[in-house]
């Protein structure tokens, strides 16, 4: 198990190395990538900000919940903070399981929970201004 909030680049293979073991026949890895557009506007770059002291325990809690639902699963998660350019990896969730069906399910469940409950915020620098993305809302940044 590994849970990181980091300012440096994330290497998905490193997380896969954490979850791999001889009994795991499937590893499912989700990578979130910075897109060049949002809300119909072009995006130049993003800033991610985390409450790291709360985010890491929350990621660990999600990992524990995955282990309760899929007892054979092993989990690693990392989220990057700071300025990210288009095409860079912002988040990775990697889950190993004995078989592919539960690996897909557990990985998807993990990234969905991370997105809705881990205190990390995205600021979009777009053609029409700079916005904080809060759920379905984009709110103008002031800083």
């Amino acid at each position: 198990m590994r849970y990181d909030v980091t300012t440096g680049p994330i290497d998905a293979h490193e997380l896969e190395a954490v979850v791999t073991h001889p009994g795991a026949g499937a590893i499912c890895t989700f990578s979130g990538i910075v897109r060049d557009n949002s809300r119909g506007q072009s995006v130049t770059h993003l800033d991610y900000e985390a409450y790291a002291e709360m985010a890491v325990p929350q990621m660990r809690k999600i990992g524990d919940e995955i282990k309760q639902r899929w007892p054979a699963a092993r989990v690693a998660m990392a989220h990057r903070t700071g300025k990210l350019e288009i095409g860079e990896v912002s988040v990775v969730v990697s889950v190993s399981c004995p078989h592919r069906h539960e690996a897909f399910e557990a990985c998807r469940w993990g990234i969905d929970r991370l997105k809705e409950s881990v205190p990390i915020w995205k600021k979009e620098h777009a053609a029409d201004g700079t916005y904080w993305i809060e759920g379905d809302e984009a709110k103008p940044a002031t800083g």
């Binding site: 809705e116 993305i133 809060e134 759920g135």
Partner: peptide
Amino acid sequence: VAFIPPVSGG
């Protein structure tokens, strides 16, 4: 004590 906005979602 921390005050935080809703998280990003996506």
